[in-house]
Simulated scan of single mutants.
Amino acid sequence: MAELKLRNLQKTYDNGPTVIHGIDLDIRDGEFMVFVGPSGCGKTTTLRMIAGLEDISGGSLSIGQRQVNDVPAAKRGVAMVFQSYALYPHMTVRENMGFGLKLAKKSRAEIDEAVQRAADILQITHLLDRKPKALSGGQRQRVAIGRAIVRKPDVFLFDEPLSNLDASLRVQMRIELAKLHKDLATTMVYVTHDQVEAMTLGDRIAVFNGGRIEQVGTPLELYQHPANQFVAGFLGSPKMNFLPARLAESSAAGSRLTLAGNTGISVPQKCPLALESAITLGLRPEHISWQPQAADNTIPAEVDLVEHLGGEQIVYARAAGIDQQIAFSLPSKDIAPARGERVFLKPEFEACHLFDAAGQTLAGRAVGA
């Protein structure tokens, strides 16, 4: 096992753009760290620099007590699992898993022992004599993970390993990866664009955007206390609602906001900005309910769409003067408003988030925090 230290890590391509802009990050020994963010944000490039597959343009990278900027990939003590399985089609599962050890000139007994151990962990012992064409997608991914396990690396690196699998198999493999981390107790770094994978797998999550890290924290820390509007909007499904507003009043008792469309609402957070400043009000769908009649601190809206998802319903409504829809969730047992119905939204304002014009968090806390 090993900890990783990234200090002002940078990547600039020859005669090209800088894509990683000075990342500072500590990954603890034995931690499951997830890099998450949209396509092109730099998460995979950072992973490849850790693996030694991309040169480091600036800063330093340490694995354990060694700075490894110029250490070849094969000598860094890392093993990488790619999005594509990259199995040799003419080799059996046993041969695929043991091929790296064979190249390292390990004895046949050592190879057989390591392959058997990995197969037992991944529950693929019965597949060892098959070839890749006789395996399902999930089985092939297990073999690719097993090939990494036999090397007994200090750090496991995963580059979107589940993206080629169907939805139900991704859920199963997430459970198996979490169990694998617990069994091996090895440092793991996992790249994904899927915020559900990030929230369910990571001990901590690093949210990437534009070659920088926006925030690092546990899944609940990021969900309940986002540092900015980008993090707040990226984590959560459906994502957080963002309503444009202006600050009308502010005191120790709270703030009065005017939403687009001239709806006035009161929130319990004090807002440290000048009056009439532009503000964005953030509300998660689970913190909004509805009622058929107007009342204090409600937002009038008209229902556009109701999605029935089995265990819950997602209602999309549109408020006067606000361009984007407002999403809120209901248990499936509740009666949802009909499409076109006029409703009055009742947010839990004690759980709201306020962001300034630059998208930085001003105030906000989650229920129970």
Rank of each mutant, 00 (worst) to 15 (best):
V189D: 05
Y190S: 02
Y190R: 09
T192G: 04
V196M: 13
E197D: 05
A198K: 12
M199N: 07
L201N: 14
D203Q: 14
R204D: 05
A206V: 04
A206S: 14
A206G: 04
V207C: 06
V207D: 06
V207Q: 08
F208Y: 08
F208P: 09
F208V: 01
N209I: 08
I213M: 05
I213E: 03
E214N: 08
Q215G: 10
V216C: 10
V216Q: 03
G217V: 03
T218F: 08
P219N: 10
P219K: 12
E221V: 09
E221K: 15
E221D: 15
L222A: 06
Y223L: 11
H225K: 15
P226E: 01
A227R: 15
A227N: 14
F230Y: 04
F230W: 05
G233M: 09
F234D: 05
F234S: 03
S237A: 14
P238R: 15
L243P: 06
L243D: 02
P244R: 01
R246C: 05
R246M: 04
R246Q: 10
L247W: 02
L247A: 10
A248R: 13
S250R: 01
S250A: 06
S251R: 01
S251T: 01
A253W: 00
A253D: 00
G254T: 00
G254C: 00
G254N: 00
S255H: 01
R256L: 15
R256N: 07
L257R: 01
L257P: 03
T258F: 00
A260H: 07
A260L: 06
G261W: 02
N262H: 08
T263N: 02
T263V: 02
G264T: 15
I265V: 15
V267I: 15
Q269P: 09
Q269A: 13
K270F: 04
C271N: 06
L273Y: 03
